[in-house]
Each structure stands twice: as C-alpha cells, then as structure tokens.
Design a protein around this nucleic acid. Sequence first.
DNA 1: CTGAAAGCGCTTACAG
DNA 2: CTGAAAGCGCTTACAG
Lengths: 336, 336
Amino acid sequence: MPLAGRPTSKDVAQEAGVSQSTVSLVLGGKWSGRVSPATARSVRVAAERLGYRPNPAARNLRLGTTRTVLLMVPTLSAPFFGPVYTGAARVAARHGLGVVVSTWPDDADGPAESPFPAPHEAIDGVLASSMPAAALERFQGTPAVLLDSGPHADVPTVDFGVADGMRAIADHLTGLGHRRIGHVAAGVDQWTFRARAETLSAAVAALPGGALARAACAIDVASARDAAHRLLARPDPPTALVCDDDLIAAGAYKAARALGLDVPGEVSVTGFDDVLLATALEPELTTVRLPAEEMGAQGMTALLELLDGGRPAPRVLPGRLVVRGSSAPPRAPLPP
Amino acid sequence: MPLAGRPTSKDVAQEAGVSQSTVSLVLGGKWSGRVSPATARSVRVAAERLGYRPNPAARNLRLGTTRTVLLMVPTLSAPFFGPVYTGAARVAARHGLGVVVSTWPDDADGPAESPFPAPHEAIDGVLASSMPAAALERFQGTPAVLLDSGPHADVPTVDFGVADGMRAIADHLTGLGHRRIGHVAAGVDQWTFRARAETLSAAVAALPGGALARAACAIDVASARDAAHRLLARPDPPTALVCDDDLIAAGAYKAARALGLDVPGEVSVTGFDDVLLATALEPELTTVRLPAEEMGAQGMTALLELLDGGRPAPRVLPGRLVVRGSSAPPRAPLPP
DNA sequence: CTGAAAGCGCTTACAG
DNA sequence: CTGAAAGCGCTTACAG
C-alpha cells in the first residue's frame, strides 16, 4: 500500500489552517485574485513541510484525463525505437503531455483474457508501433494511432514508404549489375517485412535474368549470419545480399568474412533502417534511412488530432537510400 | 477529453438491469457465491455490448495503488536499457505489476519547478537508472531504487562492480605488456564513469612505467572517433585504448582505421558493457560484460521489498571480462 | 443473492 | 477573500 500515509490536501489544509479547497486553489496555481498572498504563502509552507504531493489518481479521475500517452513497442532492445520515442515525446511535451513506453506483454505470463486494462493503461491514448498483426483489440475504446504497422481501415496510421525504399535498394543493386540477389529476410510477422519481401520479389522478377533466393532469420546477428551463410554457400551464390535490417546486415558481414568473401568486392550487402550500427560497421553500410524520429513526431501529431475529435489522414514517410561502402559492382563472372 | 462519453459501470448496470455494485463484483471476478450465474452472465453481456472498460483512475484512487512501476532512464537510444527493462518487467509481471519507461524530462522544456508530479507519476514506485547526480529530488515521497547510480545513503541501490571490471581490463592489458594506455572517456556526469576513470587512473599509476592519457567524448561514434584520434595522434601514442563504452570503442576502431593502424596488431581496443555491437564489430571487441537484465531484475526485487516495508540492502553485480579479438600484445617498440 | 451507501483525494462551480 | 459541497468512477463493507 505505497500511497498509504501520504499526506493529502486535507492534511495540508489542517496544517495551514485553511480549507482544503484553498489548498487546491493555491497549489494548482489558480489562486491569484482569489486567495490572499499571505494565505497562499502559508499553504505553500505547510505543503513543503509535510512533503505533500497531490495524488495523481484523484486528479486524473476528477479531470477525466491523464495527459499521458503510451507508446507500445515490440521490444526496447531494438535501436529503432529510441528515436521514435524522442520524436513523440518532443511533440507531446509541447502540448503538456507525457509519454510512457511499454512493450507488448509476453502472452506467456498472466491471464491474457482479463477484461481489465493493464494498470499502465491509465492513459489518454496509445501510439502502437510495429504491431504484430493481431494485437489491436487491446485498445478498443482507447484512442490509438498505428505506427509502422501498415494501412488500416479504422485507425489512423503512420508508415514508412517501405516499398519505395526497397525498390531503391533493388534499383541501386541492379544498376550496379547484380542479377543474383539474396534476401536475408526477417522472419517476423509484421507488415513492414511482408512489404519488403513482396517488393523485392516483384523487382527481381521484373528483371531480365534476375534471380532471387531468400533465407529467413530472427533479427539478431547470429541468426542472420546463419541465414546469410546458407545463401552464400549455394552452388549459385548471390552477388548481393539484401538484408531486412541493419542488424541482419551485420550478420551478413560475418557470414561473408567466415567464407573469406570481401564486402563489397565479392559480395555486396545492404541494410534497412540506418541505425547507428550502420556506420559503425566496416565497410559502412549501404542502407535505407527510415526517419524514425519523424515517425514518432507525426504519430503524436495524429494522436493529438484524434484526441481533439479529428480524423487524421494516413501518413507515409519516405525512406531515403544512403549509399555507403558495402555495395559495388559484382565481380565479372569468370568464363565457364 | 478523451474519456468523456465512455460507458461506466453505471451504464452497464442500467443495461443489465442490476445495481452498479453487482457489475463491479462480477467484472472484478469476485462474484462467485455472491451473484447468481445468470445475473453474472447478463452483466458480462451488457459490458461487452457497451464496450465497457473500467476507468483505471477511479480504480487506482479507490485501491490506493496503480500496480505500475516507472523505469526512468537517461535515454532510450542506448542499447543498454532494453535488457534492464526486460529484467525489471519479468520480475514485475510475476507480482502482477506493469512497468512503464520514461526518460528524464528535457529540462529545456516546461517549468521544471512545478510542485506537481508529472502525469506519468501515477505510479507505485520508481526504478531510476543511471541518474545524473542531482535529479533525485523529483522522487521525494515516491518509493525509489537507484540503478547504476552509485551508492546512496537513504535509497536502496543496485550497481555494477565497475571498479573490478575496469581493473580487470587494466590487468588484462598490462598483462599483455601495454604500458602507455589511452582512456577514451565518456564525458558524462554519472557515477559509473567517474568510477571507471578513477579506477583506471589508479591502476595505471600503480604500474611501473605506466602512462595514462585521457580524452573525453560524448557517447556517440563520431565524438568517440575524434577523441580516439587525438590520443593516437600524440607524439607518444598509447598502444591500447580503453573505452568507457562499446559504442565509444566503435569510434576508436574508426580512428585507428583512419590512421592505418591495425586492431589489435598496432593498437588494442577495449569496450565496456558488452552490448550487441561488441560482436558485430570486426575484430570482435574485448569488453566487460555488465549484466543489464540482472540489474533490472534485482532492482525490481529491491523495489518490491521496499514497497513491502522492507529496507533492501545495496546490491553490487560483478562484471566479467570477455576477451575477444581486439586486444593483443603491443608490437615490440622499434629501437630508437 | 442483491443493492444502497461510503469514501478514495482531488477540482471547481457556488455561496457567502 | 474563503469555505462547504458536489462529483469524477470505482471497490467493498454492510444491510437486507
């Protein structure tokens, strides 16, 4: 019972010798012209002496709003979500709102079927990022904006121009002369990865002589390394590995090195996202920069609009191809 | 006014033709033996039909607890905090608590002096990680545990054995034969970095012929690269760079490469933390593994103890030296 | 088995 | 300038 024993505004009132409503007026900053300066001062002194802090639950109940927004993400370990939060928090702060982050509850634990909101759902709205296809029901009744989760009929969305980004990668590589492409694909059930796979498939299929091989992996270095290794060990290995994520590209680098293949001399590698890791790698990674912070900001803007009773239009944020040192023309094939 | 118009338990009661207290009993799962199954069913149906969700603010006020804990971190962009969250959330879930994350508010925005808690402080307790020296006052009155913030007289703490970890790095390098050490130091006002600097200084000072040069940087690749470059460009360059963070080590790699220096052949590099990046780099990074997830778990355990009225003892979690490919004996000095 | 009522701690008309 | 009172939406004794 952590709040038990905490002083309330009533205690402060008693200490200051005034009424509870006067305390509320003074500490709420609405006293000028309504309470004498001397009384206000004594209230402040009493509050300070008692270490009084208003009970947020009471205030939230009374006001009908918590001025807090929840950002839901699949994981906090992916570097992508830091900037999303930053962008959202920046816009929120400008409107006097706080942002709090949480991850999808592990369905392993606890009764998933509780009709009750999780406690941290004492919030005004939700920004749900990179949602697994299903999980939207949890928010019925809570204003929500979907980030990086694909188009949706009923809910406002902010997405990246993933297809354009993937096409830019494909164009870049085929422009360099690559024809045998390997796709090291994130085996994750999210819209963005489905869109990446479909776009790449279509782009390579449209290419005379194009051939696509695909290997799926988890979004971690070891799993990506193994998947890339499978592709590179084929009898007709790809000359370029298109990776669904910068982290996956790091795994591809490792696979190439293990096979004694130079990047980009013997195999080109591309990433997706342009997180910090992209420039920490050697060679620096050709990738598509996704404006994560902008996604957070636009998402929060849309949510504010929604909370205001508006119907925010879907937004799509273009990615941008960033060519660095990991892509080059394929080595001329040796005569058979 | 996002909550306006939402159905309340009163609406459900009316819809089901029962009293509000019966609704509360049924939906709260405390009805068996007190409400007839038929009534319970009709309440559930009515709640479903109206899309009723209990108001968490009312429930929190009534119960005096939110069953939510706030994890405060300096930034969400550092990969270190993902595992801290995971560990804390795991322990919390076991006790029916939720964890929510937030960053230190940018003091730039807003009136820092508000006597009111930020809205997201509708919580039972705080896990404050890697605090800037000052910021503790914000929690007066809220049960708090300090993570990675150094010892504290009044507040329970969980810390890493940073000094031991740094000594292990120093011993490893001096054991290899290094004498001229460069410290690429995080210029951040946090206990952990002060402890790292002091320990390294002492270790090198205790070493016959030991010499330490230090350059400070921000915790990002570019800033670290510049700092490392300054050290390596000295007339008597260090043969080993001790970096305060794995990310800083990535910058040191870049500086070495820019100067044509092989790692570890011509300069050894060590990191700290052992985040994912450490094994994505080439060569893989010698570093100290800090058990971040364990810190989150132990911190939450301590907080639960505190909420239970206990006085949890300070905890120190040992780091572990992980030797990989980035450290080697120094090249024998050429005769003068 | 069911309902009327108290009360959590605030904010804000309203009365004086 | 100040205070008494209503009410936000719950949970939980208590009475019947």
